[in-house]
Computed example of a mutant assay.
Amino acid sequence: MTPDTLALTEQLVSQASVTPDDGGCQALLIQHLEPLGFVSETIDSGPDDFRVHNLWALRPARSGAKTLVFAGHTDVVPTGPLDQWQSPPFVPTHRDGHLYGRGTSDMKTSLAAFVVATREFLAAQPQSRLGIGFLLTSDEEGPAKDGTVVVCRMLQARAQAVDYCIVGEPTSVERTGDMIKNGRRGTMGGKLTVKGVQGHIAYPHLAKNPIHLAAPALAELTGVVWDQGNAFFPPTTWQISNIHGGTGASNVIPGTVVVDFNFRFSTESTPESLQSRLTEVLDRHGLDYDIAWTVGGLPFLTPPGVLVDAVRSAILAETGLETQLSTTGGTSDGRFIAQICPQVVELGPPNATIHKLNECVALADIEPLKNIYRRVLENLEAQARA
């Protein structure tokens, strides 16, 4: 194994880059990309106390060829209790065949593999027609309001073509390449406030308990079948996350109850259809209520086609694995990129330790990941020349 991918991963892990701090990671990557012919732009966004760093770097397509974008994030989640780490989280450490450190799996190994794969590809094919871009942010693990979405709007305003995108999220389970995400469910939250009348608990006839009023409707909502899903998505789910009610006193009927809930929805449903069906239940139960809705992201899907086939072929050639397509898990920045790019796939190392204490990646997974990315570039280049 050449040390390039591992060495760059270790350099990135050494940069403490907890959201929204980039820790100098993007500047380091620019140093590697610009000698390869990339033109880099830094796009900062957000308030002074939460300044987000974004990077757009492009090596333009030639002769009308397509453009592939590698997308990811340089920020990481907080470390948690330092005394529970077996080695310092921002000191890359080898132990038991693994590289330990915050961000090793999520997702600095992918970033290093992106860069080294691109360098190897261009060294072998310096006259490549394929356009290659890098879209990186330091606001994926945070609110995600000033990161990838800002760059996507900029690219859309410029009419910059983005034909294919690989997001380096850790998607694998046991071995690199055994699972990729070819879509993600949408997410929509709601804050439901059911109104009653506050009163003394000993005189319930003089009050209206909103918890009692809401309970039958909530029970009905837990049993609703929102859709059946489809060949790529599981059925839409609805879950209550929090219920807040009461004054803190045990002898007071509350005047309101607040219920936080979330939909994770497939392409078989829309925010509008789900909102309509939920409010129909509340109205039928005669509740006096308000709802504040938040759509965190729409579902997206990349069916088998040019990009999925290129990725599948690359994984099979490198690892011998027939990769599994999946749309499970949480959200990613793929939801923003899918608004400007018709084909988006997520592919990265195993995710068993992401966001955990003692996060790590197997050393044996690093070089195959880089090789898979390089093979994808080769497959798309062949497509461009066909």
Score class of each variant (00 low, 15 high):
Ile366Ser: 10
Gln275Tyr: 00
Ser40Cys: 13
Ile354Ala: 11
Glu359Asn: 09
Ala207Thr: 02
Lys356Arg: 15
Asn251Cys: 06
Ser273Phe: 09
Tyr289Glu: 02
Leu278Val: 01
Arg59Cys: 08
Ala124Asn: 02
Trp85Leu: 00
Gln86His: 03
Arg119Ala: 02
Glu367Ala: 14
Leu68Asn: 06
Leu192Glu: 02
Pro204Gly: 02
Phe232Trp: 11
Gly348Val: 10
Glu169Ser: 04
Thr294Gln: 07
Gly131Ile: 00
Ala292Leu: 05
Ala161Ser: 11
Leu206Pro: 03
Asp365Asn: 14
Asn182Met: 09
Ser172His: 03
Pro210Lys: 05
Asp83Ala: 14
Asp290Cys: 00
Ser138Leu: 03
Thr9His: 13
Gly305Thr: 09
Leu363Pro: 14
Val344Ile: 09
Phe336Leu: 14
Val150Leu: 10
Asp106Tyr: 13
His73Leu: 13
Gln15Ile: 07
Ile315Gln: 10
Met1Cys: 14
His285Glu: 00
Ala338Ser: 09
Pro47Gly: 13
Gly168Trp: 05
Val76Trp: 12
Gln31Lys: 15
Ala159Thr: 08
Leu12Phe: 10
Gly196Asn: 03
Asp365Gln: 15
Asp283Pro: 07
Leu316His: 09
Ala219Thr: 05
Ser110Pro: 12
Ala57Glu: 10
Asp146Val: 11
Gly133Thr: 03
Thr42Pro: 12
Gln84Val: 01
Gly37Ala: 11
Gln127Trp: 00
Asp333Gln: 12
Asp333Cys: 10
Gly348Ile: 12
Thr270Cys: 01
Leu136Pro: 08
Asp139Ser: 09
Ala71Gln: 13
Gln125Glu: 11
Thr237Cys: 06
Trp85Asp: 06
Met107Pro: 14
Trp238Asp: 04
Ser273Thr: 13
Cys25Phe: 11
Arg335Ile: 12
Thr327Tyr: 10
Thr9Phe: 09
Ser40Asn: 12
His285Arg: 03
Asp260Arg: 12
Arg375Tyr: 07
Thr267Asn: 08
Ala317Glu: 15
Ala310Met: 07
Asn262Leu: 03
Tyr164Gly: 01
Arg95Val: 00
Phe50Tyr: 14
Gly245Tyr: 04
Lys145Gln: 13
Met188Ala: 04
Arg102Cys: 05
Leu278Cys: 03
Ala157Glu: 01
Thr222Asn: 12
Phe114Asp: 07
Lys181Asp: 02
Ser110Val: 09
Phe121Met: 06
Leu380Trp: 04
Met1Ser: 15
Asp260Ala: 13
Val69Thr: 13
Met179Cys: 08
Val252Gly: 08
Asp96Cys: 07
Phe90Thr: 07
Asn371Thr: 15
Gly101His: 06
Gln125Pro: 00
Met1Tyr: 12
Thr118Ala: 02
Thr187Gly: 15
Ser45Val: 07
Asp139Tyr: 03
Glu141Val: 04
Val173Ile: 00
Gln127His: 05
Ile180Tyr: 05
Asp163Thr: 14
Lys108Val: 01
Gln31Ile: 13
Ala71His: 10
Tyr373Met: 08
Val149Glu: 13
Leu33Ile: 05
Thr279Ser: 06
Pro342Trp: 11
Glu141Phe: 02
Gln11Phe: 11
Ala352Val: 11
